[in-house]
Amino acid sequence: MTAPESEGPVLRRAVCPGSFDPVTNGHLDIIERASRLYDVVHVAVMINKSKKGVFTIDERLDLLRRTTAEYGNVEIESFHGLLVDFCKEREIPAIVKGLRAVSDFDYELQMAQMNHGLSGVETLFVPTNPTYSFLSSSLVKEVATWGGDVSHLVPPEVLTALTERLGRR
């Protein structure tokens, strides 16, 4: 796909939004798969000032940059407010969301319909790899807090950061 000569090629862009507190292997699976489908994938870390995360926004951004560096076409950013505004500002026409279960679909479908109604942004649902179908950041934090082994659920950089932050109980 190309634009008029003065504008250069049109890049296929998408966003993978989330809190990523912490980033898990399930998140990376969806981001990596999206990076094969799009020229540029924006990973948008949501800022929710009413929630206290295990990691600061800057720490999440750093962990994501380190764990996605190998993909080459992933940009890591933070945002607050409406995701559709983030998309409009960057001319991103698609949101990529991973689905673990039917319960995810019920919620995500409502969000997709709202986002489309507000701005015309499309949402693409990617079924999670069955290996990660149970995986969530909340579950990782809970298990890690109690000293459980999450080494197979998060990248090594995240495991180190979790261990340093939460310690071994």
Results as ranks from 00 to 15, higher is better:
52 K>E: 15
53 G>P: 15
53 G>I: 03
55 F>E: 02
56 T>L: 15
56 T>A: 15
56 T>W: 12
57 I>S: 13
58 D>L: 00
58 D>G: 08
58 D>Q: 14
59 E>A: 09
59 E>G: 13
59 E>L: 05
59 E>R: 04
60 R>D: 10
61 L>Q: 01
63 L>C: 04
63 L>S: 03
64 L>V: 08
66 R>F: 00
66 R>L: 00
67 T>F: 02
67 T>D: 05
68 T>Y: 04
69 A>Q: 06
69 A>G: 05
69 A>I: 03
69 A>F: 04
70 E>D: 08
70 E>S: 14
72 G>C: 06
72 G>S: 10
72 G>H: 06
75 E>L: 15
75 E>D: 15
77 E>I: 00
77 E>P: 07
78 S>M: 09
78 S>Q: 13
78 S>D: 15
79 F>H: 12
79 F>V: 12
79 F>E: 13
80 H>S: 15
80 H>T: 15
82 L>C: 12
82 L>M: 13
82 L>R: 08
83 L>C: 03
83 L>Y: 02
83 L>W: 02
84 V>R: 08
84 V>K: 06
84 V>T: 14
85 D>C: 10
86 F>W: 07
86 F>Q: 11
87 C>L: 03
87 C>D: 03
87 C>R: 07
88 K>L: 03
88 K>Y: 07
88 K>D: 12
89 E>L: 01
89 E>G: 00
90 R>T: 01
91 E>D: 14
91 E>T: 13
91 E>G: 14
92 I>Q: 07
92 I>S: 08
93 P>N: 11
93 P>T: 01
93 P>L: 00
94 A>S: 09
94 A>T: 15
94 A>G: 09
95 I>M: 04
95 I>A: 11
95 I>S: 11
96 V>M: 14
96 V>F: 12
96 V>P: 10
96 V>Q: 10
98 G>R: 00
98 G>E: 08
98 G>Q: 00
99 L>I: 00
101 A>H: 09
101 A>T: 15
101 A>S: 14
104 D>W: 03
104 D>N: 11
105 F>W: 09
105 F>L: 15
106 D>M: 06
106 D>E: 15
106 D>A: 09
107 Y>T: 13
108 E>K: 11
108 E>R: 12
108 E>A: 01
108 E>M: 02
109 L>H: 10
109 L>M: 15
109 L>P: 04
109 L>D: 07
109 L>A: 13
110 Q>K: 09
110 Q>S: 11
110 Q>Y: 04
111 M>I: 01
111 M>L: 05
111 M>A: 03
111 M>G: 02
112 A>K: 03
113 Q>Y: 06
113 Q>S: 11
113 Q>P: 04
114 M>R: 04
114 M>L: 12
115 N>L: 06
119 S>D: 10
119 S>N: 05
119 S>F: 02
121 V>K: 05
121 V>Q: 08
121 V>R: 07
122 E>Y: 09
123 T>C: 11
123 T>Q: 00
124 L>P: 06
125 F>H: 08
125 F>R: 01
125 F>K: 02
